[in-house]
Design a protein around this nucleic acid. Structure first.
Length: 419
RNA sequence: GUGGGCGUAGCCGAGUGGUCAAGGCAUCUGGUUGUGGCCCAGAAGACCGUGGGUUCGAAUCCCACCGCUCACCCCA
């Protein structure tokens, strides 16, 4: 038997109400904040991600779905949205538009990872990018949009994590300081951390090994070693957040796995959906456009995992409206009556009524059971007798009204007025 | 890439060596002649993940493989 490839899921009809609700709220909040939709390809030149996301990152080193197409081009299924959207911004000369350019998108993301709760090889992200403005008020807007979306969906107790990782001017000095600090503790840290010390020192900060916790606790904070520009940016942003009384936690250990982040980084965490608890992650990437051969252009954005949001909605018991039940189901007995029922069905559909008919030649009992299970409002019954008399029986399945007989000729009109 | 748990019908789930397998949900059909929701009866549905092995005999024991799952890593 074929099964869905590892790390992929089928989103079945029973789950679609959650997705519909999510998409609807995303459309609403992006329109409210003035973000416009952009759709970029599901694959790009491999080098776009290698340069954008950065060599040495997990994504580039081991998680990309890369292949050569029949023309020999190196192609990669997108492992994130930002690089592709910034590429589109540059390619289409969007710097000539009023700045910043505010964009959003939704779609599948591919990363070859080991699967676990809330982590898939193909998942769906809602993504926001605000490109062309370095004002901390933009950082606030982007975070606010996420806030508003989650609030509209009814989430409670989501935790916003915030940090600043500096910029190319101040980060190297901080990393040096961090490395120096750790070199005094090499005998106390775990094997992973020894590797991180060589390869990616910032990641030392989010090690979960128990033995490393005291070392991390005393490690220098990124936010204490920012250059004046970055420090001011961070202070202004937190000042705005305080003015709005937005709850957030400055998480000195929040460092993100992509090279392009500068200054602001943030995540949103949800409880109860497994150990992969980030439902939103993003940050500022002021050097990315240049890295991709574009003009120097600041930008900030986030991605939010929709599968994880659905998990969180379920976890928090948030209801999603179910698909509408049919208003009318036609029940028939005998071939001539079935033909008449099909004609009546068409008349109802033409009037915009949500109507269905029972297929096959099942018993009336069976058809009535079926109508009831569909949650239909009315059953319209046509048998030999009704056909002979030119009537149709209207049965109110809610039991509120007794059965009544309607003239077949204008039954559709009569039923339509009842709904 | 590393480690733990699991693998019996669409779903849940008994059964741990001896009538090729219980029950529940869901499905279908009936419960008098043309009527739903409750109830009752019946039917259909499993080569017990796959392949080896041990045994007179295995869903039950052993091995391998595959798959699922959780966790590490990392991320959404």
């Amino acid at each position: 038997m074929y099964t869905a490839p590892r790390g992929t899921i089928d989103i079945l009809p029973e789950d679609q109400p959650y997705w519909n609700l999510l998409r609807r709220e995303i459309e609403r909040v992006t329109a409210q904040f003035g973000y416009q939709r952009i759709d970029v390809p599901c694959f790009e030149d491999t080098s776009l991600y290698v340069r954008g996301v950065g060599e040495g990152t997990d994504i580039v080193d081991k998680e990309m779905y890369s292949f050569q197409d029949k023309g020999g081009r190196d192609i990669t299924l997108r492992p994130e949205f930002t690089a592709g959207i910034v590429r589109a911004y540059i390619e289409h000369g969007m710097r000539t538009l009023p700045q910043p350019v505010k964009l959003y998108t939704m779609g599948p993301i591919f990363r070859y990872e080991r699967v676990q709760a809330g982590r898939y090889r193909q998942h769906t992200q809602f993504d926001i990018e605000c490109i062309g403005e370095q004002d901390p008020a933009v950082d606030l807007e982007v975070m606010s949009l996420a806030w508003q979306l989650y609030a509209n969906l009814g989430f409670k107790g989501l935790a916003f994590q915030l940090n600043s990782t500096g910029c190319p001017k101040c980060r190297p000095a901080y990393v040096e300081r961090l490395v120096a600090y750790y070199q005094g503790h090499t005998h106390e840290i775990c094997a992973d951390c020894k590797r991180r010390l060589e390869r990616n020192p910032l990641r030392l900060l989010d090690c979960k090994n128990e033995g490393c916790q005291p070392i991390i606790a005393d490690a220098p904070h990124t936010s204490d070693h920012l250059c004046d520009e970055c420090a001011e940016h961070f202070a202004t942003l937190t000042g705005y957040l305080d003015a709005l009384e937005r709850p957030y936690t400055i998480n000195h250990r929040l460092v993100r796995g992509l090279d392009y982040y500068t200054k602001t980084v943030f995540e949103v965490w949800a409880q109860g959906i497994g150990s992969q608890n980030a439902v939103c992650g993003g940050g500022r990437y002021d050097g990315l456009a240049e890295e991709l051969d574009g003009p120097p252009t600041p930008g900030i954005g986030f991605g939010s995992g929709m599968e994880r949001l659905v998990l969180a909605m379920k976890e928090q018991g948030l209801a999603a409206p179910a698909a509408p039940a049919p208003q009318v189901v036609l029940v028939h007995l005998g071939q001539p009556a079935k033909t008449a029922a099909i004609v009546l069905l068409q008349q109802l559909l033409s009037r915009g009524v949500q109507a269905q008919i029972g297929f096959g030649d099942r018993s009336m009992r069976s058809q009535m059971r079926g109508a009831n299970r569909l949650g239909a409002r009315f059953a319209l019954i046509i048998g030999e007798q009704e056909l002979a008399e030119g009537v149709v029986v209207l049965n109110d399945l809610t039991g509120e009204q007794p059965e009544q007989r309607l003239p077949l000729a204008d039954a559709a009109a009569a039923v339509a007025t009842l709904l």
